[in-house]
Amino acid sequence: MTELEQRLIMELGDNFPIDSRPFAVIGQRLGMTEEEVIARVKEFIDRGVIRRLSVALRQQHVGFTANAMVMWQVPAERLAEIGRTLASFPEVTHCYERETLPDWPYNLYTMVHRPRREECLAIAERLSRAVGVGEYKVLFSKQELKRSNPQYFSEERE
């Protein structure tokens, strides 16, 4: 990725102007025309580098205070099918397969954010029935210690 592309990604991700012509403002910062910026954004979307132009909300501030990580122990041969089914539920915001460890059998992880704990538990039960897997654990967060935006392309320290 060229240096200009890196700077453009940073402007689009971290410094997006809330202005009538945001891509013109970014163009001014980087010495590009508005049309060039828009063309690059479209290209980034086509390549999948940019998933979407959107907002990320602070979940506690919009009332989604229950944050549950649901870990699943699913048979390896059913993993792809189960992963896709769990991911299809709108309440599931993240669904990842992760490596297992000798004393750690969980291989699928889903995140569920809701206003109340009971809702998260009910959703987990619903997911469990949908895929026919009973081996799962719900881990609620008790305290947020850090939540920050990714910092791309900063100099690697030491």
């Binding site: 991700g13 971290d14 999948g48 580098v49 940019i50 998933r51 907002v55 990320a56 501030h61 791309y152």
Partner: peptide, 16 residues
């Protein structure tokens, strides 16, 4: 107010 944590491009970090 901090209700919007960020606004703009959502990057697929793996793609970069």
């Amino acid at each position: 107010k901090g209700i919007i944590r960020r606004l703009g491009a959502i990057i697929d970090s793996r793609k970069i």
